[in-house]
Every structure is written in structure tokens, then in C-alpha cells.
Amino acid sequence: MSTDITVRPVTGKAELKTFVDIAYRLNADTPHWVPPLRSDVFELLNHDKNPFYEHATVQLMIAWRGDEPVGRISAHFDHLALEQPAEQGMGPGTGNWGMMDAADESVMHALIAAAEDWLRDQNMTRVIAPMSLSVWDEPGLLTKGHDHAPMIMMGHHKADYEGWIERAGYDEVKKLLTYEVPVEDGFPRLINRIVASGERNERIEIRPVDMSKFDEEATLILSILNQAWSKNWGFVPITDREVQYIKGKLKAVIYPPVNLIAYYDGEPAAFMLCLPDVNEALIDMKGSLLPFGWAKLLWKLKRKNWGGGRVPLMGVLPEHQNSRLASQLAFMMIETIRSWGVETMGAKRAEVGWILDDNQGMVAIADAIEGTINRQYSVYEKTL
């Protein structure tokens, strides 16, 4: 570790601004990095606005070389994650770090060491990282797919970070995969037959989200999500306050025809969300809505043609998982999204994920619709 590097906790608004700005400065020349809106980053870090802080303890840190900020990291632990079964990835004694950016490897190692020291002081015994901040935000480090820009709600990191983190003593514990899915020419015949069979089945109903009842619809979707993902690796439940917070975030980017709820025998059974790739609009805005970025963003949100979209979330209630019905509902919703996107929005590409690499059911669905892995995010662990 270079002796001229010091790592200090963030104190005050000026240092918080420095913490946020570091990412824009260090990634200015990173190919395909999409600058997030600064307002969104500040809100993510705002204890009064982000309900994550109601069940998490977070310490932001900046690395300095003299008077120059040369890196950043968040060290944190989620009290709800500590209550989860250890075999599901989190559990007692598990802390995290994330939001890391560093000018070079010595800075990265100094940041990680400082985060580990802080976590030890909080009685944590292992690290799962990176988590920026929670598993529901941007988990994992990009380790494959640096040759293209991420879609909405996905991170992008310098290729060098993989080696830097592994040389700090971290081992990969889980892969999170995203799949590029062909959309223009439709899916294989077998999938089309499965979809057609489902459409003839009177016990199945697939309908779009009703925006006139958005509050109720979003509550239903997030309830299914909590149940559907409850046994997944890394799961941490979404709280009631987070449900309310997420609703407000989703409403602006929801297109009802591609955000769907599936029913079986009149009861909710599954859902699938598809979001337009807002990153198409953000990539040239440099993280700011000023002076005219807000107008550009609104125009692109409302325009009729999107190059692509992403399915970030889907869920099937536990009683239907690992069944033919689960696959059929997934194929039916994916085909509904695909056909509407191509015919109405002129979609050229789509992405599904992230998907856990050992989620055999979802991997099989992605393979069946001829998806190909286009990005991989690696999650690491280390014993403290």
C-alpha cells in the first residue's frame, strides 16, 4: 500500500459532493460508462429520502493523495441482510462495500483495507462485495461485457478493477448474468407453440399494469417479488417503506403494454417488468439535467421509438415455481413484450437480467429464447 494515500470518512456536504464527483472524473475516459444523473446519486445517499438507511449502517470514505481525491468507497451492512440464512449468501456477520472507484491499484487496496477495518469495528466477520448499495441497486462488478454500454439500472466498471479486487484477497462467490435477446424475428417455433397453448388456456390471463390503479398494482408486483425471490441467493426483503419509494421511481418509466401481471385461476401468479433503456438518453447528458437536459430526457422518455429495453425483474409465486406453468407464463409475457416492442416502439434489441448463474429455471428460459450472455457481474467474498 502506498504510504502517501490516506483514507478518511466523508464528513459534511462538501465532502459528499467530492465523493459523488470522483466517479465522474475517474470514469470520464472509461469507454461505454454512462454517467448517472447526479441528482439520483445524491438521493441514493440521502438518509432522509432513501429508506435503505432505515435498516442499514453506511460509512462513505474518500482516498486522498495529498490534497487530491483519488478514490472512494462505501462500507456498510444491512441489518435485514444479517437476519437472512447464511446459506443464501448474506446472514450473520456479513458486511459489504461498494460504490468504489480508484485512480490506481494502490488506491483501490487502501480503500478496501479501510472498508474492511471499519467492518471489523462493526463486528462483521466476512465481506460480500461490491454492493452499491444493496442487492436491489447495483450488485456485483462488471467482469464481462466492457465492449458495450449498460442498459438501465446496470453498472459499468473499469476492466482493471477485476484484478485489483482479486489481488486484495477476494474470491468470486456468485455470477450475475444478463442476456441479449433477439427481438426482430421472433422466437423459435417451440416457444411460439407454448405461447399459443397458453393463450388458449382459459385458466391463464396476462394483462398490462393498470396505471389508473398504479399504487395497488405496484404493491401487488412488489409483494410477488418478495415472495418469488425469498429463496434466492443474496435475497433481502423489500420493506413497506421501500415499496412506497420504489413506486415513485417506477411510475415515470412504466409503459403498461410491457409491464405485465399474470393470473392463474383468477389469482395473481407472476409478473414481468420491462423498462425502456433510459441510458440511451443519459449517455450524452454528463449526469446533469441542466441547462436543457431535462427537456431532452422527457422527450426521449415519451418518444415512440426506443432502440431497446430491459427486463430487470420478473417473479413467479413459490407455489408455481419449478413447474411447466412457470415457464409458460414467462414465455407468454416475454412474447407479449417482444411483439409490442418491435411493432410499436421499433425495438431492435432487448436484455433480460440479471439472472443468477445457478438459477437453472431462468437460465433455461433465456437459452430457450436464444438469449446470449452479454454481460457478467461478479460478486466476491472474503473472510475478515
Rank of each mutant, 00 (worst) to 15 (best):
D104N: 15
H79R: 15
Q122D: 09
D67K: 12
A103D: 12
A113I: 04
I206F: 01
M90Y: 11
M108K: 06
A168W: 07
V183A: 03
E83K: 14
V181S: 00
I128Q: 13
L141G: 03
R65M: 09
H157N: 15
L111A: 03
M151K: 06
T143S: 14
A113Y: 09
E116K: 11
L141Y: 07
R65N: 12
G169W: 00
M154K: 06
A159C: 06
E83M: 09
G71R: 04
N192V: 06
M151L: 13
D147G: 11
P150W: 05
Y161Q: 01
H109F: 09
M153E: 09
E172A: 14
I204S: 05
P130S: 02
H156K: 06
N123H: 15
V195I: 11
G89I: 08
P150N: 09
R65T: 01
R65F: 02
K174D: 01
R189F: 15
V135D: 04
E166F: 07
H146Q: 07
E205T: 14
M108E: 11
T178M: 06
L141Q: 07
Y161H: 08
P69I: 00
H109P: 03
W97A: 14
T94L: 09
H146P: 11
M124W: 08
G169C: 06
E180Q: 13
A114K: 06
E199F: 04
W64R: 08
L176A: 12
E166C: 05
M90V: 11
S106I: 01
V183W: 02
H148D: 12
K144P: 08
P85N: 04
P150C: 10
Q84I: 13
A110L: 05
T125Q: 11
I112S: 01
E138C: 11
H148F: 12
Q122F: 03
P182K: 07
G91S: 01
E87G: 11
H146L: 09
I165D: 01
D78V: 04
K174P: 00
H76D: 05
M124L: 12
Y161N: 04
G163N: 12
S134E: 02
A81H: 02
P85E: 07
I152E: 05
G95K: 01
I128M: 13
G145D: 06
P139A: 03
R189L: 15
Q84M: 15
P139V: 02
V107W: 00
G155Q: 04
R65V: 10
Y161M: 13
A168G: 10
A102F: 03
P182W: 00
E138T: 10
P130R: 01
A81S: 10
L119Y: 10
V181A: 01
H76W: 14
A196M: 08
R65H: 13
R200T: 12
A110M: 04
I191G: 07
I73C: 10
S74K: 00
A159N: 09
R65S: 13
A81D: 00
A129E: 00
K174C: 03
A110F: 02
W118V: 07
A168E: 10
A129W: 02
A115F: 00
P69Y: 03
W164S: 03
R200M: 15
L177P: 00
A196R: 14
G95L: 01
H156S: 13
W97M: 11
K175C: 08
A86D: 14
D78M: 01
E138K: 12
R189N: 14
K175D: 14
E162V: 13
